[in-house]
Each structure stands twice: as structure tokens, then as C-alpha cells.
Write a protein that binds this DNA or RNA. Structure first.
Length: 520
RNA sequence: CGCGGAGUAGAGCAGCCCGGUAGCUCGCCAGGCUCAUAACCUGGAGGUCGUUGGUUCAAAUCCUUCCUCCGCAACCA
């Protein structure tokens, strides 16, 4: 059996998870579910990156020990993933013992191999805030937090010889499709490699909340060696907790948002090269969910709270919306009105209503069970030919991470099915006693189209699609991914099940008031 | 001249790499239908494709000028 290893970044629990975290994670979840449906042995990893100054500070603010603070936020993440129906196989925390074991090994090994060396870290330091800032972070030369003066300070630190890998990295990025979309490659090469790749600081002595450097206890490992190592620590690379490294490494795809492309496309491959281990096959960097001209923040309240949105409109609707709206390469704008509109048009009117009207007709005209007799018509061929191409198209889109396009393809099929109802006018056929065979054929073709659509949609909407398949009376062996390639799989004398609306229509005006009480 | 991205119907986007007088979704208007979650189907109105100049028989698509917006520049998904 082929393996498939997909990862989200490990999230930084300095605050509660938000809709942005949801996009990355839901996207990975959809792909992971698709791969499982295709028969791959999937490992889907997510987790949290819990060390660093910021967590230490936040914990102090909250009057908690760093670990206790992290535990609290991590629970919120896990709660959200459960709520969002995320089928992750493993959850790695950088505070887990096995992870620390791996990080210490990696750090020491890089040191032994001469890729980590001791030097001086210089930066602007704000004494009252006890924080280092880079020149670019300063506001008018002052501390961005408190506005006071900063002083040039030097601190002993270890550095990773990123500069030694400049040529190799450039070659890696510019050849093939290691990093997508392509615009990111240009950013990395022009912004960082061409101007000269600087060695990167990988240890700190100014705070304690981190993995100790085992051969120099003043130091803790700083950010990226700690965080990036999660992708292999979670497989058991030089720790005893897991034994999956041989099987699952290299990763098939690391998914992330655009702001951490640098570390994944430069530091991470360089680390792996230095350790002489294989590189991940692909990095995919998506954009952000933005709020238009408004900053995404707590003050926006309901509009961006995934718990509120999922609770009120359904988790599948929320999953659908964020996956459908996010373009392959750019950002997406979250507009609550469009979100609600999309639920109504795509999910309620097109999909939900298609299932409803079809099941209802089988129920009405055949008491819920189709007869076996059939009578085909030329008009059916058009529909059937249309359906035939869809599964391959969807697979191609998912495999290349074009998830929005995959959904578009499936919804084109759903529209085609609605049109087929108008073309065949089953309500007319029902009035003609001699047209029963024909009527049964039309309804069967509709059920088949729905069956195939539902299977293709299941990775994206895993709550609702099993219910759709139940409504149309599909047996277990008629729910497999591969069966979507065979129009006519559903048993002929199928019995449907009536039910309430799968995606109830939303009163947009009212909901707008709920989501945007201030009327903005 | 730091780098990258974007400026296309009221809104959100595709098309641009491989030039041939614009396409999708929503909204709007008008028909059709009545199986269905007042849903569905058909048709229509609406854009001189940010700006300047150029290449070409022909440019949204290639080159150039300028303008505007967004992002990045050591840890916001």
C-alpha cells in the first residue's frame, strides 16, 4: 500500500485559534481524507509550537507557568479540530518528551557536523520589555511595544550555517515544483538567496522556555530547529516513541500559509541537507483569509469565530466556504454576506435541493423503491458523458492542491443534474402510465449522479455526505471512491430515505445582523 | 529604483505563460416549469480589461511610463 504523509505547520498557541488556522488544517484534512479514500496509508500530522519568549510572557501575564498556559491554549486547538471534524492521525507538541529528544539530537548533530557554531547575536534591546527587536520592527527607532528607547545589545548565540546552502537551495527552488505556487519561488530567490543568505540564529540565552541545548546549558534552542523538527520527531526520528520514520519520511506535502514559506523552503531543506536526510517532496503555501480593509481581530467577534460560524451554519458549510473561497495562489476575503449567500446558492439550492427533489420524486412516484425496468433515451447520454469525466478532474485538482477548483468541478456536475431534471420533466412522465420505465430511468440517473457527487464531496464535507448517501439508499460497496468511475453502480431496485433539509436556507438579512451587529 | 503580488461588468474572481475584438459565480431584469429547501431551467441588461506610449494585420494577453492597493524584510495560518 502506498503511503501519504501530509502536515500542517505546528501552530503557535500565543492566542486562541482562529479561522486562519482552520483553513490550513481543513485543507490538509480534505486531502488526507481523499487519499484515504483512494487507499493510501495516510499519516496526517498537526500540532503546536509551544516554546519561546512570547509564550513565556503570555503565561506570566496570565499568572500561569508556561506549560500550564500552553496546555490551556493547546486544548482550545484540539477542541477546534474535533469540532471541525479534522481527521489528524497525530498531534505533536514541542513540549513532548520525544520531540525534545529529537531536537537535542538534531542540534547536537548539526553542531558536530560543523553546521552550527557559536557567535554573537546583536539586536536592539528594550530593557523594560526585556525584548529584542530588529531594526525593521522598531517604530521611529523606539520599542514597538512601549515606545521607549532601545539599546544595541549583543548576546552569545549559536548560528546555523544557512549560507552554506545558498546554491543548493536556489537550484532546489528553481527546478521542478518543490515549492508552489511559483510566485513564492521568486520571492525566496530574489529576497533572500540573491542578496546573500545570512546564517540564522538558533539559540538564545535571554529566556528559558525552550529545549535546552544539551551540551551548553545556558542556551535554549531558538524557534526553527525546534519547530521544524516536528515533522520528523513525530515519526520517531531519533526518539523511541514512534517507529514511522522509515515508512513515512519524506513528507509528501507540507502545507502552510505564505508567511512561513521562508523557513520551510530555506531553513528546513538546509537542515535536512546538513543531516543528509531526504527532502520533503513538496511545499504548498496558500494565502490568507483576510477581512478586507478590516484587520482580523477579536473585535470582529462572531464574523470570524469558527465555533460560532460552525455552530450556527454547520461545520460542513464552514469547511465548504473557506475551501471554496481560497484561490490557489492569492488571499481570499472573508465577507459574511458572501459566505451566507454561498451556503444558500451552492449548498441549499443546488445540492441540498437536488437531493431533496430527487428523493422526494422516488418516494412520490414509486413509494420510495425504484422498479428494475429501464428505458434509456438519447438525452441521458449527455448527462452520463458529463459525469464520466468528473472524478478524474477532481483527482487532478486535489492532487495539485487546487481545492477550490475541485469543488467547482463537482458543483458543475450538480448543476448539470438539476438541468437534467428540466430536460426530462419527470413530473410529466409520472402522469403517463406507459412511461414508468422511462421515469424510473430518469430518477435512477439522478440518484447515480448524486451518489458520485456525494462521494467526491465527502473529503470536503464529511458530516453531511454520508447522510446524502444514506438518503439515496446506497450500499456500502456503492460508496467507494473508485466506484465513482462507474456510472450504474447503484443497485437498480434502490430504496430511498426521506429526511429534513440537509442545508437549510438562511435568512441572509437576519444573519447579517447577528454576524455584524454594528452594521459595518 | 529593496522584493513579490494585485488592479477585468454592482460584488467576488478566471482568462494573461502559448496574442485573434471578453468569461464564471452572486446580485439584478424578463420568461419557463411546478418534482423540490419560494428552490430549479432558459434568456437578457451591465465592462473602451488602472494609466501612458510602443511591437503587431491583431493585445486584457508581449515590451514601456506612471498611478493605486496589499503583502514580505528573523517566528500573525
Amino acid at each position: 500500500m502506498s503511503k501519504f504523509y501530509i502536515t500542517t505547520p505546528i501552530y503557535y498557541p500565543s492566542g486562541s485559534p482562529h479561522i486562519g488556522h482552520c483553513y490550513t488544517t481543513v485543507a490538509c484534512d480534505a486531502v488526507a481524507r481523499y487519499k484515504r479514500a483512494k487507499g493510501f496509508d495516510v499519516l496526517f500530522l498537526t500540532g503546536t509550537d509551544e516554546h519561546g519568549q512570547k509564550i513565556e510572557d503570555k503565561a506570566t501575564e496570565a499568572g500561569l507557568a508556561p506549560q500550564a498556559y500552553a496546555d490551556k491554549i493547546v486544548n482550545e486547538f484540539k477542541k477546534l479540530w474535533t469540532f471541525m471534524n479534522i481527521s489528524y492521525d497525530r498531534f505533536v507538541r514541542t513540549t513532548d518528551d520525544y520531540h525534545i529528544q529529537t531536537v537535542q539530537y538534531v542540534f547536537e548533530e548539526l553542531y558536530k557536523r560543523g553546521y552550527i557554531y557559536k557567535s554573537q547575536y546583536t539586536g536592539k534591546y528594550c530593557k523594560p520589555c526585556e525584548s529584542f527587536w530588529t531594526d525593521s520592527q522598531l517604530v521611529n527607532g523606539k520599542c514597538p511595544d512601549c515606545g521607549r528607547d532601545v539599546v544595541e545589545t549583543a548576546e552569545e548565540a549559536y548560528f546555523f550555517k544557512l549560507s552554506a546552502f545558498a546554491d543548493k537551495l536556489q537550484k532546489l527552488l528553481e527546478s521542478g515544483n518543490f515549492l508552489e505556487p511559483e510566485s513564492r519561488v521568486k520571492e525566496m530567490v530574489n529576497n533572500f538567496i540573491k542578496p546573500g543568505l545570512a546564517d540564522t540564529c538558533v539559540s538564545r540565552t535571554s529566556f528559558k522556555w525552550g529545549v535546552p541545548v544539551n551540551f551548553d546549558e545556558k542556551h535554549v534552542v531558538y524557534v526553527w530547529i525546534d519547530a521544524l523538527s516536528n515533522y520528523i520527531s513525530a515519526l520517531g526520528y531519533h526518539n523511541d516513541t514512534y517507529q514511522d520514520y522509515e515508512k513515512f519520511w519524506p513528507a509528501d506535502v507540507h502545507v502552510m500559509a505564505k508567511e512561513i514559506v521562508r523557513f520551510h523552503s530555506l531553513v528546513w531543506p538546509a537542515m535536512l541537507m546538513a543531516l543528509d536526510i531526504p527532502l520533503p517532496k513538496k511545499l504548498y503555501a496558500h494565502g490568507w483569509i483576510t477581512m478586507g480593509d478590516k484587520k482580523m481581530s477579536k473585535s470582529l467577534g462572531n464574523v470570524v469565530d469558527p465555533f460560532v460560524l460552525g455552530e450556527r451554519y454547520g461545520v460542513d458549510a464552514l469547511r465548504y466556504e473557506i475551501l471554496r473561497e481560497m484561490p490557489y495562489a492569492g488571499d481570499s476575503v472573508f465577507v459574511s454576506e458572501l459566505f451566507l449567500q454561498r451556503i444558500n446558492t451552492d449548498l441549499a439550492n443546488n445540492l441540498g435541493n437536488l437531493v431533496s427533489r430527487t428523493v422526494s420524486m422516488v418516494n412520490k412516484y414509486f413509494s420510495g423503491t425504484l422498479p428494475q425496468t429501464r428505458k434509456a433515451d438519447a438525452i441521458d447520454t449527455d448527462l452520463i458523458n458529463f459525469v464520466k469525466d468528473i472524478p478524474a478532474q477532481v483527482e487532478e485538482k486535489i492532487n495539485s492542491m487546487h481545492l477550490s477548483d475541485a469543488l467547482e468541478v463537482i458543483f458543475n456536475l450538480i448543476s448539470r443534474a438539476n438541468k437534467y431534471i428540466d430536460e426530462t420533466m419527470p413530473w410529466s412522465l409520472a402522469k403517463d402510465e406507459n412511461a414508468k420505465d422511462r421515469l424510473a430511468t430518469v430518477l435512477y440517473n439522478l440518484l447515480e449522479t448524486i451518489r458520485i457527487s456525494a462521494i467526491l464531496l465527502e473529503p470536503f464535507m464529511p458530516n453531511t455526505m454520508p447522510e446524502v448517501l444514506h438518503r439515496i439508499g446506497a450500499n456500502d460497496d456503492e460508496k467507494t471512491w473508485d466506484s465513482t468511475y462507474n456510472f450504474g453502480t447503484l443497485h437498480q431496485d434502490v430504496t430511498v430515505n426521506m429526511g429534513t433539509a440537509l442545508f437549510p436556507r438562511i435568512n441572509i438579512e437576519e444573519e447579517q445582523k447577528f454576524l455584524n451587529p454594528s452594521g459595518e
